[in-house]
């Protein structure tokens, strides 16, 4: 019988230590290995969460460490949930989420479907299409502000070229009606490739044999699309929606660079509003309650969505 490496190690270890190592159960050793990770997780995730929950019931301000901290109960939550301005930012966020996801799914799926036809140069076009998502959101936000500039912006000139409208007669990021769409257009431009890539993975995972069998059964391309392509890509699409939904719920950099939340507060998404409360107004307790409300909202919605996703996958 050959010695195992552990036995060799135990023999080479001085007697008292070896006895102790031999005395450890597998479970104990497992805990030793896992403990640092658990400690790290508790330190950087769980503890701040618990601390945030605690702060949310106080009037604490991080810029006034010497001020007495008062326990205010549910006052912060009550203020937030009854503040019409906060509901407006929620509406702005919902509008942004709905339209970006809808457009990105529709355009992304269409592009993926076209790319999947494997035409000549499809690999090249795939590379070109994914370029926007490789850029920094801050950079994208900055250069789109120039594109949207009424006097020198390319976007306004393109609109003018196709519609005949005077380019300096409208401002995408300065108009109350257009500003919400200006951020939707940029986010869609930037992140549609991401949805496209996920859809492409889904489309390429469908075995050709299924389409061949459908053709033998004389199913039309339209029927093949609705009964094979869409159901088999749906879990991928739903995953893309989940990723984009979570990302856009916390959207900050792109919109700050583009509109700064304006004009007025028309494009002030919840993340921007939260940042102002926490790190500009320094209402730490209030902002903690705000963050908890957002966390519960996202967590709740994501949980429901993941359950639906699992059901779709099981089908």
């Amino acid at each position: 019988m050959t010695d195992s490496p552990v036995d060799k190690l135990a023999r080479a270890t001085p007697q008292p230590v070896a006895r102790r190592v031999r005395g450890l159960s597998d479970r104990a050793i497992a805990w030793i290995f896992v403990a640092p990770t658990i400690f790290l997780l508790l330190a950087v995730n769980i503890f701040p969460l618990i601390w945030t929950i605690r702060l949310s019931f106080t009037n604490f301000r991080a810029n006034r460490p010497n001020r007495e901290v008062e326990w205010v109960g549910l006052r912060n939550y009550e203020r937030i949930l009854t503040d019409s301005d906060i509901w407006l930012t929620m509406q702005a966020t919902a509008h942004f989420l709905f339209w970006t996801i809808l457009l990105q799914v529709l355009i992304g799926f269409t592009i993926a479907w076209l790319i999947n036809r494997n035409f000549k140069g499809s690999a090249f076009w795939t590379t070109v299409i994914v370029l926007p998502m490789m850029l920094s959101p801050a950079v994208v936000g900055n250069f789109w502000t120039f594109l949207y500039q009424p006097q020198i912006g390319l976007f306004n000139y393109a609109v003018s070229f196709f519609t005949g409208v005077d380019p300096s007669s409208f401002s995408m990021i300065g108009s109350v009606n257009l500003a919400p769409w200006s951020i939707i257009i940029v986010d869609t431009w930037m992140w549609t490739p991401f949805v496209m890539l996920i859809c492409l993975a889904g489309l390429r995972s469908i075995p050709d044999s299924i389409y061949e069998a459908a053709e033998v059964d004389r199913a039309s391309p339209w029927r093949q699309f609705w009964t094979i392509t869409v159901p088999m890509v749906l879990p991928f699409l739903m995953l893309a929606v989940l990723f984009r939904g979570i990302e856009n719920f916390k959207m900050f950099d792109l919109v700050v660079q583009l509109t700064g939340g304006g004009p007025g507060s028309i494009t002030e998404l919840t993340s921007i509003n939260l940042k102002r409360e926490a790190f500009e107004k320094w209402r730490t307790g209030y902002a903690s309650a705000y963050a908890i409300i957002l966390f519960v909202t996202v967590f709740g919605l994501a949980s429901i969505y993941v359950k639906a996703l699992n059901k779709v996958k099981e089908r």
């Binding site: 009424p150 006097q151 300096s168 401002s171 990021i173 300065g174 509109t259 304006g262 004009p263």
Partner: peptide
């Protein structure tokens, strides 16, 4: 509203 250049919103 009356007197600034176009797009002068920020």
């Amino acid at each position: 509203e009356c007197c600034t250049p176009p797009g002068y919103t920020d």
